[in-house]
């Protein structure tokens, strides 16, 4: 859940880097909990992807580089990516365990390659190609 909120938030803020938005504004657009989103934004702030703007009309602003930040950079802040299942099998040295670990590694490698190859800039291009209705729902 936090990961999805974080991705929505960085995409929303990166789309207009000069604009600042409150957690409440972002939460309304995506129909998510503003309290939960506020926590996620604080975490993103600690990681340097967004910055808090204080004062009247304050909020959050994108502080990263949309061409240099990929989806994996954001996701790995909130959850482990890949190797978790493989780690759980690490003590299983049966032939079946080794074979299963190999298959899971193939899935993990593909997931990591996909997420690390899609920058926020590329995602924003993809968003712009989506039908307006779907993008808004």
């Amino acid at each position: 859940m936090a990961t999805r909120h974080a991705l929505f938030a960085v995409l929303e803020l990166a789309a207009q880097p000069e604009r600042q938005m409150s957690a409440a504004e972002i939460a309304v657009k995506y129909g998510i909990s503003p309290n939960h989103l506020a926590k996620v934004l604080r975490t993103l702030g600690r990681e340097g992807f967004v910055e808090a703007v204080r004062g009247v009309g304050g909020g959050y602003r994108f502080a990263g580089n949309a061409k240099r930040t990929n989806l994996l950079d954001i996701i790995r802040i909130f959850e482990p990516v890949g190797s978790l299942e493989a780690d759980e099998l690490a003590d299983d040295n049966t032939s079946e365990g080794l074979a299963l670990r190999r298959v899971l590694k193939e899935i993990d490698d593909t997931a990591r390659a996909t997420l690390s190859s899609i920058s926020l800039d590329t995602m924003l291009k993809l968003v712009s190609r989506m039908p307006r209705k779907a993008a808004a729902s």
Partner: peptide, 13 residues
């Protein structure tokens, strides 16, 4: 190659 993040990111872009 899956590990070729530079070129993979280029094609994605």
């Amino acid at each position: 190659a899956r590990t070729d993040q530079l070129v993979m990111s280029f094609f994605r872009s």
